[in-house]
């Protein structure tokens, strides 16, 4: 049914009829599109603001730490953990609180901080780093067996050298020098030539020397 069989009036009528039938959906479609576009931009601006605010809060926390103002440190850490828990800054803040707790000898509290950080870290590498820290804490708590279990559960292939060094430390504690030696050797193999921990790990390895294998 070709359109040109109608005269002008009829054509107009048909167009209007079509518009009446579909006008609402077209309008809704346009509005929906606009809402999507503006909404997306709003959302992006909101995220940028949120991230900037978190960065500012974190910078203020660093200043407080540098000046050793205990109350402010606690307050700002709480704020970061509560209001900015969706940013990586909060993971850092929790990790820093864990560090302060370890320095103060409160290892159980530090474990809680790391658990929080683990739950809120979204990035895989960051998560692995938190896992490594958790394993270090287990070792510090005098639980070498659990430290090894935590290392086994660590995902990914990052932080190999540090993980192997810690494994070696834990194995020494468990009285398994042969396995520890292998772990230290793996740690050194995973390091670059100028790695800062190379000398330390080599010393630990040297101390495990057995006859016929000295200076390994």
């Amino acid at each position: 049914m070709a359109f040109d069989v109608y005269d002008d009036y009829e054509q107009g009528e048909r167009v209007q009829q079509w518009l009446r039938k579909n006008g609402v959906s077209i309008a809704v479609g346009i509005v929906l599109g606009l809402v999507l576009i503006f909404g997306w931009q709003q959302w992006k601006a909101h995220r940028a603001n949120h991230e900037q605010a978190a960065a500012t809060e974190y910078a203020a926390l660093q200043v407080a730490v540098a000046q050793n103002r205990a109350n402010e440190i606690d307050m700002r850490t709480e704020t970061l953990l509560k209001d900015y828990s969706d940013t990586a800054w909060s993971v850092f803040a929790a990790g820093e609180r864990a560090q302060r707790n370890v320095m103060a000898g409160q290892l159980d509290k530090a474990a809680g901080d790391l658990e929080w950080a683990r739950a809120h870290a979204k990035d895989d590498t960051l998560k692995t780093l938190v896992d490594l820290r958790a394993a270090q804490l287990k070792y510090a708590q005098g639980k070498p067996q659990e430290a090894i279990a935590a290392l086994d559960a660590m995902k990914g292939t990052s932080f190999v050298a540090l993980a192997q060094e810690l494994r070696g430390d834990a194995l020494v504690k468990l009285g398994r020098p042969d396995d520890a030696r292998k772990a230290y050797q793996a740690a050194i193999a995973a390091m670059g030539d100028s790695a800062p921990q190379r000398g330390v790990v080599q010393t630990k390895l040297d101390d495990l020397a057995v006859a016929g294998k000295q200076g390994a």
């Binding site: 820093e96 290892l107 010393t203 101390d207």
Partner: peptide
């Protein structure tokens, strides 16, 4: 900096190091 600020070195680590260094 965030990594440095979250690094954990426990008393156990320090002790272990002194045991070796002062051996």
């Amino acid at each position: 900096e965030a990594i440095a600020n979250t690094t954990l070195v426990s008393d156990a680590d320090v002790d272990a190091f002194f045991r070796l260094r002062l051996q």
